[in-house]
Design a protein around this nucleic acid. Structure first.
Lengths: 234, 234
DNA sequence: ACTTTTCAATGGTGCTATCTTTTTCAGGAA
DNA sequence: TTCCTGAAAAAGATAGCACCATTGAAAAGT
């Protein structure tokens, strides 16, 4: 993807990012009426580009268009909230916290089940790699290198989600990475990862390695349980 | 959405549905190269429509387009598998079973956590309604009216997902409905819903009603546990 | 290796058809 | 006269079409 309102991609991408961000942030409130004519003027683009952009926003259910009315910003409850572009825009907005909360809760739900699935379906190579990452995690955790720790932590969770063999689980890997990153960057992580967390990661890797679905789920549950408490979910 | 290759919507919708279905089913293999010129001829539409369509498919990561190359069908691992349109197309294809499996696993992951969230955040009205639906479920279950049972079961799960207050959970309600429907239609359900399942639904409603997150999660776990076993996940 | 050619997307312009909403206006009843 | 009603007309916006210029990248040729 293009990311950000950056200059990057074509006109279409820029217009899409700008408008998407405006809608996601609520700057363009639901019910707001736009017209292609206004948009082409505002963004200084041709009708072609304006159309393309609105079609994409429409396919994400951020807007709908009706004859004689124009293009109308949809109520948030209709948005395709799993679209990575929308997730990205929402994380850029001031309502970022709400998006993090939703994502974290999703993670709490999915990761233990993904661990169980991985224990059942991971390839031999994946099982090995997972163990290596867990070991690396302990090394970096005890050394106190938070930045490197984050990178490996992301790799660990990403690999697990993919090893689950469920493409829907795999698809949330980017979002999980963003949650982990944000948690570290905002200092919500203890300066030095806790022993319990390191142990839990190792247990996940070990359980997946020997195909123990129940233990894998339980260990991954321990990994996310701290997040759960931080969110006030139990 | 328009649903199906039906006559419905505009040219854009029809072309999108047709192409999307072809890609989702694998009839158009990853790596296949298309050009706008070919497409406008094949579908007998203007360049505008062909462009719009491909832009939408591109935003779903079903294709990517490069200059001088054309429009290329993406590898499935890049697809936005949470896009409701894509889910729908996959359920129409011969690979429908794989999609059901993924969705079921997602459901197993999400619903217990959604129940806990609902216990915490549901409105007063939602708590009451959930109880009413659970009672209705028992009545219909014991009467053996499978069709009506299905309708209420869907309403129950949909309400719970929405009451969770997590818009990402709410967004999977349609998918859950399709899974439940398919399970009933294909006779995967016992002719008469089991007592344990009826009890579990009631327990979910009761726990949500009194705000007991732990019990709500546990009870919803019992609701999905049968599905879990049917899938060979434990 | 470098240059040229070719191909297909990117981006733009202007037009017609069609669908809906709003407005207008005529006609009848109070 | 005034007010309401309903049909017809007008207007506003997308839907869709045809065609054109530019640009970037792959492939062919030197």
């Amino acid at each position: 993807m293009s990311t950000a309102t950056a200059e990057g991609g074509g006109l279409h991408q820029r217009m899409l990012d700008t408008l998407g961000e405006s809608i996601a942030s609520g700057k363009l409130a639901p019910g707001t009426r736009l017209t292609l004519d206004d948009l082409q003027q505002e963004f200084n683009v041709s009708r072609t580009i304006a159309r393309d952009t609105m079609r994409v926003l429409e396919s994400m259910n951020l807007v709908y268009s009706r004859r004689r009315v124009g293009i109308v910003v949809q109520d948030p409850r209709h948005w395709n909230v799993f679209d990575p572009k929308l997730v990205h825009w929402r994380l850029l907005s001031e309502r970022r916290e709400a998006q993090y909360a939703s994502l974290t809760e999703l993670r709490i739900a999915v990761e233990p089940i993904a661990a169980a699935a991985a224990a059942r379906r991971a390839t031999h190579a994946q099982r090995g790699e997972l163990g290596a990452l867990a070991a690396e995690l302990r090394r970096l955790g005890e050394a106190g290198d938070l930045e490197a720790f984050l990178a490996v932590d992301i790799a660990f969770h990403r690999l697990l989600l993919h090893a689950s063999g469920n493409e829907m689980f795999a698809a949330i890997d980017e979002m999980v990475a963003e949650v982990l990153t944000s948690r570290t960057k905002q200092g919500l992580m203890p300066f030095r990862p806790e022993q319990a967390a390191l142990k839990a990661h190792e247990d996940v890797a070990a359980a997946v390695s020997r195909g123990d679905t129940g233990k894998a789920e339980e260990a991954m549950h321990r990994v996310v349980v701290e997040v759960r408490q931080a969110m006030g979910l139990e």
